[in-house]
Design a protein around this nucleic acid. Structure first.
Length: 424
RNA sequence: GGAGAAUUGGCAGAGUGGUCGAAUGCGGCAGUCUUGAAAACUGUUGAGGGUCACACCUCCGGGGGUUCGAAUCCCUCAUUCUCCGCCA
């Protein structure tokens, strides 16, 4: 959520940013927001004046009662009763106006960074880096879902039976490989200075609002109506919400956290060949990195996160590329996002395995995540997060790119974790 | 699940209807003293709205109510603790 004061003072920048995101009715949206803000402040001022008066009268009444001047007190009482009526109305108006403003603010996405390319769809994302050799596969090479079946390491049908589509069962070396990947990622992240945390997999409404999944993506999360809790779509939600309503000290920065969690996504509206196998699941595993940074350091931090993920993909020997997402494809809350994609050789397409973003103070504003700056003023912090890494598509990439006629050859870096070199 | 107690500023903890945004202690920050530090002493120290700046307004777990006036009384929800029950 943007700060109203920021919108008020930087209308031009905001409109330019919204244009880059192809937001329709941006002019109107901003105009309505500023109007609501102005109205709200006007009502607030009026209400404050009335409250000030009635506070004063109440004190006087107290004095009169003490000094035994009951009649004087009674007269003032009548006055305050009138004020009370007025202030009640104004309070209601204020509440309504504040809600209106809040809802408008929820509709305004983050302002993209200068370097975010224009564009309306994923076609317009900018490839900023690519490395790793795309292997030439042997004859009869298979897509990962066939390999999974052949080696009996992932059972999609069994998941169907137990739960439904998109909830696979990993078996034998498949299950072990999952565990290996999780441990490997966590070890890489902690070695890079991220503190490991284990967090709840269900979150309350306030947390959903804090990181921006609510109200924007309500339908994408599984919801337990009985207790009003949401299954997390990413560890970003519980981990970042650790810092909701927190005022940090300047020397608390940088804060670096990593967490493994399963992720649950309803993926309403997804269909077709692109959701086959591990490409798109309702439940999947992911290791996440989250950073809380001083505003002047957040882009440095973003670069370091990108480099960190790079290092892992290099070590796994997977061909990958990095995209800078365009205005039309970047997430609602993000100011700058880099997507990592691994080439899936047997499917002949790129699969997103990580998304690393700087949210600047957009999340922090909702979270009320602040710090005391060196002038003693509270200021919003910057939040960032990224996958490091998401398992299913890494697994898909590994299975497809590392397949040989003799079986799947596990990358060297993973062998100490998996305990085996081949799946055959 | 049942019974009881509690929830106050960074922490501890006072405050049962007006003079309370809130005593006191600790911690933090600044200063005096010191070669420096410690100790001692002095001052300062919650958040949000509002204002050019003041004024002023709101906030004592969340929400609602009583009252001219609520941290204080009532209702409700949440959380924590103690005892009992059940249990990985």
């Amino acid at each position: 959520m943007l700060q109203v004061a920021f919108i008020r003072e930087n209308k031009g920048i905001v409109l330019k940013g919204l244009a880059k995101r192809n937001v329709k009715n941006a002019e109107e949206l901003i105009a309505n927001t500023l109007q609501a803000d102005e109205d709200r402040r006007a009502i607030q001022t009026e209400l404050d004046a009335i409250l000030a008066e009635s506070n004063k009268l109440s004190k006087d009444i107290g004095q009169f009662f003490k000094s035994g001047e009951r009649q004087k007190a009674e007269i003032l009482k009548q006055k305050t009763i009138q004020l009370k009526e007025k202030s009640k109305n104004l309070t209601e108006n204020l509440q309504a106006k504040a809600n209106e403003l809040q809802e408008l603010l929820y509709l305004i996405p983050n302002i993209p960074n200068e370097i975010v390319p224009g564009g309306s769809s994923e076609e317009d994302n900018l490839t900023v880096f690519q490395e790793g050799e795309i292997p030439t596969l042997h004859k009869g090479a298979l897509p990962h879902w066939e390999l999974a079946k052949k080696y009996d390491i992932i059972d999609f049908e069994l998941g169907n039976k137990i739960t439904g589509a998109g909830f696979p069962v990993y078996k034998g070396k498949g299950a072990k490989l999952q565990r290996a990947l999780i441990n490997y990622f966590l070890d890489k992240n902690t070695a890079a200075g991220y503190d490991e945390v284990q967090v709840p997999h269900l979150v309350n409404e306030a947390s959903g609002f804090g990181t921006g999944q609510l109200p924007d993506k309500e339908g994408q999360m599984y919801h337990d109506a009985q207790d009003n809790l949401y299954l997390i779509p990413t560890a970003e939600v519980p981990v970042t919400n650790i810092f909701r309503d927190v005022i940090l000290k300047e020397n608390d920065f940088p804060i670096c956290k990593t967490a493994y969690t399963p992720c649950f996504r309803r993926e309403a509206g997804s269909y077709g060949a692109h959701v086959r196998g591990l490409n798109r699941l309702h439940q999947f595993d992911k290791v996440e990195i989250v950073r809380i940074e001083h505003p002047t350091k957040s882009y440095e931090a973003l670069d370091s996160m990108v480099n960190h993920v790079k290092g892992i993909l290099q070590e796994l020997n997977l061909p990958y590329r990095i995209l800078r997402l365009c205005g039309g494809d970047i997430g609602f809350t993000s100011a700058l996002t880099y997507d990592f994609e691994v080439f899936s050789t047997a499917q002949d397409r790129w699969l997103e395995v990580s998304s690393v973003s700087n949210f600047e103070n957009f999340q922090a504003n909702r979270l009320k995540l602040r710090f005391k700056n060196n002038k003693g003023k509270t200021e919003l912090a910057h939040t960032l997060n990224g996958s490091s890494l998401a398992l299913p598509r890494i697994l898909a990439g590994l299975l497809e790119n590392c397949q040989t006629p003799e079986g799947i050859k596990i990358p060297k870096a993973l062998v100490p974790y998996s305990g085996f070199e081949f799946i055959n």
